[in-house]
Design a binder for these strands. Structure first.
Lengths: 194, 194
DNA sequence: GAATAAAAACCGACTGGTCGGTTTGTTTTT
DNA sequence: AAAAACAAACCGACCAGTCGGTTTTTATTC
């Protein structure tokens, strides 16, 4: 079918991830992207309307993986889900160094660009609701103490984001994976019924 | 003396804050800055060696205000200090919308630019140590339960940063000031001796 | 299944414009 | 008058996006 087309598109996508994370959205020019992907500028603009369009495609793909992860943990109990997340910490912090700057870039773009904000805010709300529901489920199941699910959700997400940010700022300043594990333990300890 | 010179410098500085926050470091050109400040490019490059030099000057000034705030609360007890911080929440969240994007920009630049990273990481370590010492003081004073000050410090800072980030992402998604107050209450409640 | 037509994918030189920084010259301060 | 502060024209590099033309793939006809 359009096998070559698919290949080109994915070459652009992975070059974009690579260059956007290392040099940033602005610093990585379309020419750079094309050179790295080994394609021409014409091919690039055949697949993406603009540079921002590519950016949005990247965002989409990234949100998709989160949706998949959520889907995969749908039938677990609340404490089990938290355990799953904890188990993913080593992988998360290992890959944070490459992926996080781009994540920050998304944030920055979203705070200034209406189109990107719209594309980000909906999934953000979806994830927040999912997480809140998860905590509420834990409370209803009787495994968590009576907390405000909404508030607790905001807190947990905050802690996670803050830890990731700090680990980006100062990767060698602490054993971040350990800090994350102990923080989670502390949070869960306060959440679990004794 | 060099009164006019001082004036020009501060005009550049405040225009930089204004334009960097609204449009971003890259998008705000030196020409834009000069136009906004009402000066010429010659004047700009008389005061700052490069655009990045201006950026670093901004960072310096901002770190100075933090140092001042810390200095001003040096003789308070640990719980009193936390109270002070809580009282500052309304102001912090009010001004977050303008200042935060620039803060994020600092972060992003720091993660990619050795010079800016060096200028950021030292104060970051200083603040972390100060905060850790504050918690240790609270434990020693007997007002806090026995926690790991290092870990607790990382957690509290994470929560604060995460809340600020979320409020940037979705300013109207929650009453962030209220979430912050309740989160603090929750954290302190777990910290204070009963 | 070979020939042909149509469509999709791709190429790369080119454009209009921007940007960080420099240079040269003028005004102001001391 | 010397030095510091500022103005304005200028420079070369760069960059997102375009466009006319070419190659490859797919669909159609015989």
């Amino acid at each position: 079918m359009q096998q070559r087309s698919e290949e080109t598109r994915s070459k652009i996508l992975s070059s974009a991830i690579k260059l956007f994370s290392t040099h940033g959205y602005n610093a990585a020019s379309v020419d750079d992207l094309c050179r790295d992907a080994g394609i021409s500028k014409g091919a690039f603009y055949h697949h993406f309307k603009t540079k921002q369009d590519l950016f949005l495609a990247l965002l989409d793909g990234w949100l998709q993986t989160i949706d998949n992860a959520i889907e995969a943990s749908k039938e677990l109990t609340a404490p089990e889900t938290f355990m799953r997340i904890t188990e993913a910490f080593p992988y998360i912090f290992e890959t944070a160094g490459e992926g996080l700057p781009m994540f920050l870039e998304f944030w920055l773009q979203a705070s200034r660009d209406e189109k990107i904000w719209q594309a980000s805010i909906k999934p953000y709300h979806r994830y927040h609701k999912h997480f809140t529901a998860l905590i509420k489920k834990g409370v209803d199941e009787g495994s968590f103490v009576e907390v405000d699910p909404e508030l607790t959700s905001r807190m947990i997400v905050s802690t996670a984001m803050g830890l990731l940010l700090q680990s980006l700022m100062d990767p060698k300043g602490a054993k971040w994976e350990k800090v994350a594990r102990e923080s989670t333990a502390m949070l869960i300890d306060n959440l679990l019924k004794k």
